[in-house]
């Protein structure tokens, strides 16, 4: 098993005909993901290296059997594209796009909730289930198949930790990038719930950063609902308040959203928090083998 993407994934990529969309869509296919369709309005009937392109996501669901949608559409058009995916009949929508206005995402979040569609992202690197499927931009070569589930707000930081796990001889059930925006479709809690239910996952690594209170909420949730060991890392101890650190959501507002508060909340519930990515990977490996 793995979570969110796997052998059963049938992927449709919105924005497949764009430069980035083509590059990553085909890269996902090369990895073994079942890429069944692309969508670009007005380009229905064309194909991208043998992958049929449709005008709408709905058509790709009906005619190509797509069940998972990846959004690779420029920011100002992305929220309507996600909305279209939510209404198309796919089960999962993975939005890679960075820079979507947050109030647009607010509306889109509730549409996804109401429709019962799992939304991952936006502003995320996607989901990789090693050996099975890759949907997004995660470089698969740094991850092996294994027992550790990873959930993270950050891309490169996750690659760093994944690579250290791999060098230590451990692998991953899945790697989920939930995204660094203030409003994301799935929070730590949603993904922790899925890992708890996934038989392949024996330990969970959670990578957070400054801003919001998703880590604090996760700490409460872990204490009451998660039986598997969780190891965490938090980035942004040296971030000054009031400054946005790259990700739209990575900002300390007044006294809330600090790395220290998140670390304290997690440790208070018995979650071990690594000082550096290296130490986090080390703790995860030790815990798994103990």
């Amino acid at each position: 098993m793995s979570i969110i993407v796997g052998k059963e994934t049938k992927l449709v990529v919105s924005g497949l005909t764009g430069r980035e969309g083509t590059f990553h869509g085909l890269r996902n296919r090369d990895y073994g993901t079942d890429l069944v369709a692309g969508v670009t309005p007005g380009k229905g009937g064309q194909d991208v290296e043998g992958v049929p392109v449709f005008d709408t996501i709905k058509e790709s669901v009906e005619q190509a059997g797509a069940n998972t949608s990846m959004i690779f559409v420029p920011a100002r058009f992305a929220a309507p594209a996600i909305d279209e995916a939510i209404e198309s009949g796919v089960e999962t929508v993975i939005a890679i796009t960075e820079g979507i206005p947050v109030l647009d995402m607010l509306k889109t979040y509730w549409k996804a909730k109401e429709a019962g569609v799992r939304l991952i992202g936006p502003n995320c690197p996607g989901v990789l289930s090693p050996g099975k499927a890759n949907v997004g931009i995660i470089p698969a070569q740094f991850f092996d198949q294994g027992k550790i589930g990873v959930v993270s707000k950050s891309g490169t930081l996750t690659y760093q930790i994944g690579n250290e796990l791999k060098q230590a001889g451990e692998g991953n059930s899945s790697i989920v990038g939930i995204g660094g925006d203030p409003i994301v479709g799935s929070d730590f809690i949603d993904i922790l719930t899925m890992y708890e239910a996934d038989p392949e996952t024996e330990l969970i690594v959670m990578v957070g950063e400054i801003g919001g209170d998703a880590e604090e909420r996760a700490a409460e949730f872990i204490a009451s609902e998660i039986s598997k060991p969780v190891v965490a890392y938090i980035a942004g101890f040296t971030a000054p308040p009031g400054k946005q650190m790259g990700h739209a959501g990575a900002i300390i507002s007044g006294s809330s959203g600090t790395a220290q508060a998140k670390k304290d909340a997690l440790e208070a519930k018995g979650v071990r928090v690594g000082e550096s990515p290296t130490e986090t990977a080390k703790i995860a490996v030790e815990t798994l083998r103990s």
């Binding site: 950050s154 971030a239 990575a250």
Partner: peptide, 14 residues
């Protein structure tokens, strides 16, 4: 990457 960059600041401070 934003996350790796924040982490780098932290490790330098440590």
């Amino acid at each position: 990457g934003a996350g790796l960059c924040m982490s780098t600041l932290d490790v330098v401070a440590q």
